[in-house]
Nucleic acid binder design. Structure first.
Lengths: 340, 340
DNA sequence: AACGAAATCGCAAACGTTTGCGGAACGTTA
DNA sequence: TAACGTTCCGCAAACGTTTGCGATTTCGTT
């Protein structure tokens, strides 16, 4: 911003008119004569004038920017969501300020403050794993900053959200394994602090019950990452009655299990069928290809951004919060289906 | 921003002092008595006052924000870079505005305009594949907006950049294959429009020449993605003298080749050794694990952000542009080394 | 010739903050 | 008592833009 950036004043001075006239001329206000309008526009483009969005924001009390708080960007799912958000924002003329909470609650709070300080017009957020206190979000609501949750949301805060039907997804995934003839299906569960972790577990249980299969707690193990999955599957296979199917909470754990099994000479899917979650680039890369739940991250991003922008642009301060539940797709591949 | 956001004026009015006093009190200016300082601070925190960064930006002609333009966020490498950038920016008190060019030149131009309009203090950019005209970047330079390139840079524009030594990386990768006893090494090449594509090709050639192996053009094929790699490797194996090693331009193509070979019953690494590029999460997931060049994306992000912030904060307008060349690491895994 | 309408434009205030300068009140010293 | 030094605070301008309102000019009508 140093010295030389050309402003409306510069144009006004050079043309011997007032800043108001330049401002109006630039936006085609009818009060301005064709002659000066042309003169202004010509000079503006010769000088490569670009409006100062900051001054505009201050004046209008609207920044035309939205904030995003995301736990971790280096994830196929989250980066897909981000991509969807940025694309929609771009089309709508909004800039996107992105913060990464790194799953740390205090950083999330700091991020909210920073975004608020920058007077974003609204915030998209997926809360961090260890958040169980939400004053910072209530602060936003109190100050009329629209908030839209995506994927993970804070219980007790009423506002827009777009989530995936995790319960249904888990149900579908488990049912698929049952339909394939599996009797003892294990589950790698995610963080139970997050609703999505619990929903997936419940969907899994529901599917079993519906099929008349008793829930065996020894088949439910907490495993969030690659290493945990490798250990978990080893233990599972040493059970007196080892599982013949695994529904994993994400693709990484699914693949961890798969590779470990294959190393031990256990055939996938013949002996153990596997289903993952949140269809990433991994799916097509392992052999056999991984059956997985496609969460449609990009679509989640576009939906969330659209909801937020719609609310920002809305005149009606009372229009009720909406919840969009995105349906998932079970992408069936080689890891769960025995070719006949 | 609606109605109720509390400002310095509100505090001033409530306390019967002037806005100047409040401003000074909040930042501990010595001119203010302990008594009023305390009163101001107390009220400020009771009212949850948060400074308006926009007003500040306008006043100081410094927004404390940086812009990032990235071709595609949904890539392990790029999202790692982004992560590094955001973390450093966060620590330095900068907000990050992120734009995605989607490899489209016009969008890149529009992104530059938007960032300039928002008066970011500097811009980090990795140019899109189809950019060969750089007026938009020269515009930034002309307006004293610091620019730092990362990974991909525009030829002919002198400014800071942080890149990886692609030539050296390709050389190391190819040499490794040679050291493992491979004689006919193929190369999947990337977009030759980008310097990094050309550098990798040259590094590959150099390694061959150094070892006295003639460059066989029939072993060099253009393959940027999974599908192209599958086709390419099929053709290669039908050559009268098929390759016994492949150096791929990225991990996806490497894995495409690997899976295709395995399906045909060709053993990796015994019959064909494979090396990928830009070590992502894939590497550990295929069997055998993929040897790959770790580009240190996160470190690239932190380095680039640090360079930019240093320049933004620098008083000296003439301090010369720097180029940081990050060294890569060849991570040797099972896909290229035959266990003895 | 006079009047009203239409066409153009400028003034000034405002958005929230910072900061140089000046000013009032008080105490200290010679 | 006069002069001076401190301490503490307010005035006003500025950053770049928009906009309601009023002012001026021009023109067409009677």
């Amino acid at each position: 911003m140093k010295s030389g950036q050309v402003t409306i004043k510069d144009i006004a001075k050079a043309l011997g008119v007032s800043p108001s006239t330049v401002s109006r001329a630039l936006k085609g206000h009818p009060d301005i004569s064709e002659e000066t309008r042309k003169a202004v526009n010509d000079l503006a483009s010769r000088l490569k004038y670009e409006p100062n969005a900051i001054a505009l924001s201050l004046k209008q009390s609207r920044s035309n920017s939205i904030g995003v708080i995301i736990p971790e960007m280096v994830h196929y799912f989250f980066s897909s969501v981000l991509s969807g958000i940025t694309d929609v924002a771009y089309d709508a003329g909004f800039t996107v300020i992105i913060c990464q909470s790194n799953e740390i609650h205090e950083r999330e709070v700091a991020n909210v403050k920073a975004l608020y300080s920058n007077r974003v017009d609204g915030i998209l957020i997926s809360i961090s794993k260890d958040s169980d206190e939400f004053d910072h979000l209530n602060f936003l609501i109190d100050n009329d900053i629209p908030v839209v949750f995506f994927d993970r949301f804070a219980p007790g805060i009423v506002c827009d959200k777009v989530i995936v039907d995790d319960f249904d997804a888990a149900y579908k995934a488990t049912k698929h394994l049952i339909d394939e003839g599996r009797k003892r299906i294990a589950h790698f569960s995610g963080p139970q602090k997050l609703l999505i972790g619990r929903e997936r577990l419940e969907g899994y249980k529901k599917a079993l019950k519906s099929a008349g299969i008793p829930v065996d707690e020894s088949l439910i193990v907490h495993a969030e990452n690659f290493e945990m999955a490798r250990e978990a599957v080893s233990k599972l296979m040493e059970l007196p009655k080892p599982p013949d199917g695994i529904f994993a909470v994400n693709d990484l754990t699914a693949i961890g299990a798969m590779l470990t099994l294959q190393k031990r000479g256990i055939k996938v899917p013949d002996e153990v069928a596997i289903v993952g979650f949140s269809d990433g680039k991994f799916s097509g890369i392992v052999e056999p290809n991984l059956t997985s739940v496609d969460q449609h991250g990009y679509e989640m991003g576009t939906a969330a951004a659209r909801m937020l922008i719609k609310r920002i642009l809305s005149e009606d301060p009372f229009y009720p919060p909406e919840t969009v539940i995105l349906q998932t797709s079970l992408i069936i591949r080689g890891s769960s289906r025995v070719e006949k």
